[in-house]
Design a protein around this nucleic acid. Sequence first.
DNA 1: CGTAGGTTTGACTGATCTCAAGTTTGGTGG
DNA 2: CCACCAAACTTGAGATCAGTCAAACCTACG
Lengths: 265, 265
Amino acid sequence: MLETYTDFGFYCFIDRLVDEENMTANDNDAFTRVIHKLERLAPLEQADRDAIRALPFRIKTAPPNHYLVKEGAAATDCCVLLTGYVCRHKTTSSGDRQIVSFHMPGDILDLQHLLLSRADHNLETITEATFALVPAEDLRRVAQQRPLLAEALWRDTLIDASIFREWVLNVGRRDAKSRIAHMLCEFAARREKAGLGPPERFNLPMTQEQIADATGLTSVHVNRMLFELAADGVIVRDKRQVEITDWSRMCRVADFNAAYLHEAA
Amino acid sequence: MLETYTDFGFYCFIDRLVDEENMTANDNDAFTRVIHKLERLAPLEQADRDAIRALPFRIKTAPPNHYLVKEGAAATDCCVLLTGYVCRHKTTSSGDRQIVSFHMPGDILDLQHLLLSRADHNLETITEATFALVPAEDLRRVAQQRPLLAEALWRDTLIDASIFREWVLNVGRRDAKSRIAHMLCEFAARREKAGLGPPERFNLPMTQEQIADATGLTSVHVNRMLFELAADGVIVRDKRQVEITDWSRMCRVADFNAAYLHEAA
DNA sequence: CGTAGGTTTGACTGATCTCAAGTTTGGTGG
DNA sequence: CCACCAAACTTGAGATCAGTCAAACCTACG
């Protein structure tokens, strides 16, 4: 059912994605998940929930390493990630890539497209992913009409910004081992909050090269540091599976304090 | 007129700042500047302008190196910077500091306090600074009642987030010389957009150590790189004064593209 | 069972840090 | 106006963390 796309023009990649035929039964699921998330961000009224359910949307699927949005593209849609993992990244003119965030099911992506007309970064799938596409202008209209909804969405973007600030600190001032450990802690914590499983044991969706691009390191060094973390006894690895054997010691190594996630994310 | 405060409890620093007696004449100026900024972010109606002018606020002054907000503090106010320069920063448990943003007159600081209850970073003056303090709950109420105003403020926070993403890239993937050059370009560009003077020649308010903390380097290395930038002929320095002699070459060295500032900031 | 992408390992290089000693600057008080 | 002082800046030499290059080794998948 999935086709693989590898070659695209610069704009409107999403139009070439696969429409999921068999998703209609799950339409409600998609927004139930979002509403659940927004409820945690602000106290919604019934009218807010109804307004969300009334939004037009399309369900799409994309294969791994597929660009959803490219830097400079016109911003037309917001999407809710339903399954799979996605990252945002930017590149220098010399071609070095920096991943600026990871996203997991339940995350609302590119909410900034509501109010900024051009994408300032790329959005790329890490694994195969499905998501609900909502036209930015419709969501914007609803946000204008429903103050509580606007507040929930705004709050989500503010938490995003807080995470970026922590990443600046992570990449700017922590050594390689702590950086990687911090990234693992954040991934585990957000994963748990999103209801995707326990933080002590999980499968990493990203390659070591992607970890390197998120932490400002090289994949070779990431590999060595993962071995050191294992040698230190704070994690046990098996392929992409990671077990954090001692969460409090891991947090110390990672210098991780979840306060910046603001009880949500 | 200015007293110097150096020792504070952990919360509510702002209460101990000096109230400016002679600022009443300038009350309108304070909000005129903000309204002007918000007009660029969204098309306001007269009622929006009136709502802003009706907000309660206090004008305060702080000396250099003065904390306005500390990480973990309850978030009670938003402030508009009227004069002077300010930075936001975070620290690792080992005490290393990372500056995550610089702010200049006209910037609205800590807008995230509208919706996040605790500060996740410090806010500290670089130079002596004056600002207007607005209780977060009043601003929040106005944002709920005036959708266009909410949109302008939200957009401002989204641009903030875009700048953080660029900083992650800057600190994560550029070499020392480019990082510093990039920081200088951003400072020059934002300064110009804020109507504070031409981008080709300006006085840096921050020390080389603060530049180091913003770029994830040491002050020693910042010093050497500033000399190299001068030796390369892209800048001329005299004390804290910087002249960018060839803007397009400087942008190339810095890998600077102002798109991420989204025509505002 | 062949291939490509991902991971692992080793040897060497180099950008940036560290430490430590000057030097300059700007502000303050005499 | 000058002397002094602390903070900021400058410079050098040596140390180190992380990068580079290159080869091998997995392992999932067609």
